[in-house]
């Protein structure tokens, strides 16, 4: 493999642009979705239909003073948002947008994304611990407590798909769905996957570590300005990656009629993100112990049974 320095820089710039643009669009989309679901219009002032609102907010956030609490563990406090954000740049690398558009084809791309996804939790834990705030600490502890409950079903989901395709490469998985998308074979698995990634991205109804009405703002209670916006950026980028993974694993990647592959990928990704937003603006929050028992008692058996059945069918 020969990668030139220029190539790496190119990838980095491209991914950074993607992350930034994606966050701008998603924040705007989220507010629009929230607004319209609540008989409102959402942002309307900055730009047509408020499309530039996120930029205005971003400038405001960046220009704000970075407040570090006296009692905070300074290095950890500052490190946490970065730990949350940086893995995203790596996790975007193996994501294929079409047959040809892909930063780097990795034969273990799937594993990379899943492993890096865990680092998000580390960022949350660091933020919770470093802020030296009890609410933040509770938020961080909750994030860690729930990892196993969703990671195992998530991994089993992914394993099932890997079993069906026989490859860890996202590109191969997408190519294997040229004719029929996996979601048609595995509808239940798709639901389980969507639920687990909602958990993974800390989105309502599973936003325990933020839990506004309980923990004020959870792990980012003490963050303001830039730190806060980095967490925001991280959250939306994780959503993008999770939706991208769902697209590749279940919705056939870039396959679709008429439109070019990249367009299809983006349409699918944003549809899934829309679905996650729809959840958020519909449901009340689950209680954390209920979620844990839900993870262990429903998601895990469901995905396991599905796994076994799939294995059986494949063996026949």
């Amino acid at each position: 493999m020969n990668i030139s320095l220029l190539g790496i820089v190119g990838y980095l710039v491209g991914i950074a642009a993607l992350v930034g643009l994606n966050a701008v669009i998603l924040v705007w989309l989220e507010r629009k979705v929230a607004g319209h679901m609540q008989f409102r219009l959402g942002p309307m002032e900055v730009g047509p239909h408020g499309i530039l609102q996120t930029l205005a907010d971003g400038i405001k956030l960046v220009s704000k003073q970075l407040v570090i609490p006296d009692e905070a563990d300074k290095p950890l406090f500052l490190l946490a948002p970065i730990v949350s954000l940086v893995p995203i740049f790596a996790a975007m690398v193996p994501l294929p947008f079409s047959e040809t558009v892909q930063a780097w084809e990795l034969n273990i791309g799937l594993l990379l994304i899943i492993a890096l996804g865990l680092l998000n939790t580390l960022g949350i834990l660091l933020a919770g611990w470093g802020s030296n705030n009890k609410y933040a600490l509770l938020g961080g502890a909750r994030a860690v407590a729930q990892i196993l409950a969703y990671k195992i079903p998530l991994l089993i989901c992914v394993m099932t798909i890997i079993m069906m395709t026989g490859s860890f490469s996202l590109r191969d998985i997408a190519i294997a769905q040229k004719d029929t998308w996996n979601v048609l074979y595995q509808p239940i698995l798709f639901i389980v996957y969507i639920i687990t990634v909602t958990l993974e991205t800390n989105r309502s109804p599973f936003d325990f570590s933020e839990a506004e009405s309980e923990l004020v703002a959870g792990f980012h209670t003490e963050y303001s300005g830039m730190g806060f916006s980095l967490f925001f950026l991280a959250e939306y980028s994780y959503m993008f990656i999770a939706a991208g993974l769902a697209t590749v694993l279940f919705l056939g990647g870039w396959h679709g009629p008429w439109l070019p592959g990249v367009a299809w990928t983006l349409i699918k990704i944003y549809s899934i993100i829309f679905l996650m937003m729809w959840f958020r603006w519909t449901f009340p929050r689950v209680r954390i112990d209920q979620m844990l028992s839900f993870g262990w008692k429903i998601l895990l058996p469901l995905s396991l049974i599905n796994f076994i059945i799939t294995a059986g069918v494949l063996a026949l």
Partner: peptide, 10 residues
Amino acid sequence: DLGGFTPFLQ
């Protein structure tokens, strides 16, 4: 309080 936003505005 239970974490649902839309009901409030509804």
